[in-house]
Each structure stands twice: as structure tokens, then as C-alpha cells.
Design a binder for these strands. Structure first.
Length: 220
DNA sequence: GGCGGGATATTCT
DNA sequence: GAATATCCCGCCC
């Protein structure tokens, strides 16, 4: 349990299968400033263009390999870290063998170690549950940035430990956050979270990017 | 607790 | 040039 081989077994599967299995897993980043560990409560799956009969229009890899998304087209078990909205980084775990370009976006979790360091990195957080609540916040709390794009999580400064027991909490799923167009519809309910977990992101209901969203939302 | 607006850079038409 | 797998702050209930 918790062996890198088990992790690879999970990450070789389609992102939609791997994503819920990663809930409860712990991401650890050991930096010169110290270690921070986040226990995942929320993730999203994105499938590569050749990883399903029905391509995922919301995936960064949808249009093929580019300089930005090249890491997703590589082998599983690596971080795909991208920069967005001119100020935020978000981290994914690359799934599936080389060429298939699937990924699991790390959307939120609970800081279970290194809370002091995480608080220093995220002074805007008012409660502990906000330290890694949301993909860009999670990246900041863990100290992940551009330099971690392509880094392996099988060994090194960033590692993943799978849950030791069967998940005691109910996994729910629904439409992905911030995705407009067909990829955001109920046909792609590929956001997964631990029901009732306070670190699951709450996002604006009603309007996102000027368009209506589904009423289905975060923790209740 | 919930809304609205603004910020900011990389990416690919 | 437009869109973006977002967050923060200020204001209002």
C-alpha cells in the first residue's frame, strides 16, 4: 500500500477512473522551507483526444500537442503545471501511457502537515480549510509553480501517498468548474469530491463567465 | 454568506 | 485580439 507501483496502476487508467481513486491521497512537497502535505478532497478528470471515443473538448490536450501541454502527452506519474488567468498556477497528475494526454486536476484538499508554512504562503486564507481550497490555492499552499511542470511524483521532492484504508467517505461527482461550452455540461460530470468535506471548493452558483451553470454545486 | 468587478500573462485564432 | 481548468477584495444583504 502506498507503493509507487500502486500509484502507477491507478495513473495508467483513464483519468475518469483514476480521479475518484485519488481522493484521500496525500500530496507531499518537500522544499527548502519545509514540507507541506495536502490530503485531496476534490479533483477533476480531463481526457486526451485519443483516450476516448468521445473526445473531451475542455481538456488542454484537446487540440493536440503544444509547447504548453507537452507534459500531458508524456508518461504517467508526472506533474502538469500550467499558468492561467495571468496569475495562477494549477497542478495536474498526468495519467495514461505516453501519447494519450489525460490528466487529473488537483482542485482542493486539507493541509495535514506544514500548516505554518502553508499559512505563510497563503496569508489571505482566513480559515485552515481555505489553505488549499481551489486549484490555484492548492498550488500556492504546496509551493508548486512553473518549475514543477514535468516533475515526477514517483520519487523526489513531490510524492503521492495513497489512502491506507478503503475510503470511508462518500464520493460525489458533478460538472467541472469554470468550464464553459459542451465540456462543462452534465455529459461530462468529471468533477469528483468527498461529500461534506469543508475543503471542497465553493464556487459561484448561478453565473460563471456570464453564463448560467447547473444548480448542482459543491458541498451541499 | 453572496454577489460583482478587476487583475494579470500565456496561449492559440 | 479574445479567451482562459481563478482568486481576492469591497460592498451589500
Amino acid at each position: 500500500m502506498g507503493h509507487p507501483e500502486d500509484l502507477l496502476t491507478i495513473l495508467n487508467q483513464p483519468a475518469t477512473t483514476a480521479a475518484p481513486l485519488l481522493l484521500g491521497a496525500c500530496i507531499r512537497h518537500e522544499s527548502p522551507d519545509g514540507a507541506v502535505v495536502v490530503r485531496l478532497s476534490e479533483v477533476e478528470a480531463y481526457l486526451g483526444p485519443r483516450d476516448s471515443a468521445d473526445p473531451d473538448p475542455a481538456a488542454h490536450s484537446y487540440g493536440g500537442k503544444t509547447n504548453r501541454n507537452a507534459v500531458m502527452f508524456g508518461p504517467p506519474g508526472h506533474l502538469y503545471v500550467y499558468f492561467t488567468y495571468g496569475m495562477h498556477y494549477c497542478a495536474n497528475l498526468v495519467c495514461r501511457p505516453e501519447g494519450l494526454a489525460s490528466g487529473v486536476l488537483l482542485r482542493g484538499g486539507e493541509v495535514v502537515e506544514g500548516a505554518d508554512l502553508a499559512r505563510r504562503r497563503r496569508p489571505a486564507a482566513r480559515k485552515a480549510s481555505e489553505l488549499a481550497q481551489g486549484p490555484a490555492r492548492l498550488a500556492v499552499a504546496l509551493g508548486l509553480g512553473r518549475e514543477h511542470n514535468g516533475v515526477s511524483v514517483l520519487q523526489g521532492e513531490v510524492t503521492v501517498r495513497l489512502p491506507e484504508r478503503a475510503r470511508p467517505q462518500l464520493v460525489r461527482n458533478g460538472p467541472r468548474v469554470g468550464v464553459s461550452g459542451p465540456g462543462g455540461s452534465a455529459d461530462y460530470p468529471w468533477r469528483f469530491w468527498l461529500d461534506g468535506d469543508p475543503t471542497v471548493s465553493r464556487y459561484k452558483s448561478g453565473v460563471v463567465h456570464g453564463k448560467r451553470t447547473t444548480p448542482e454545486n459543491g458541498s451541499l
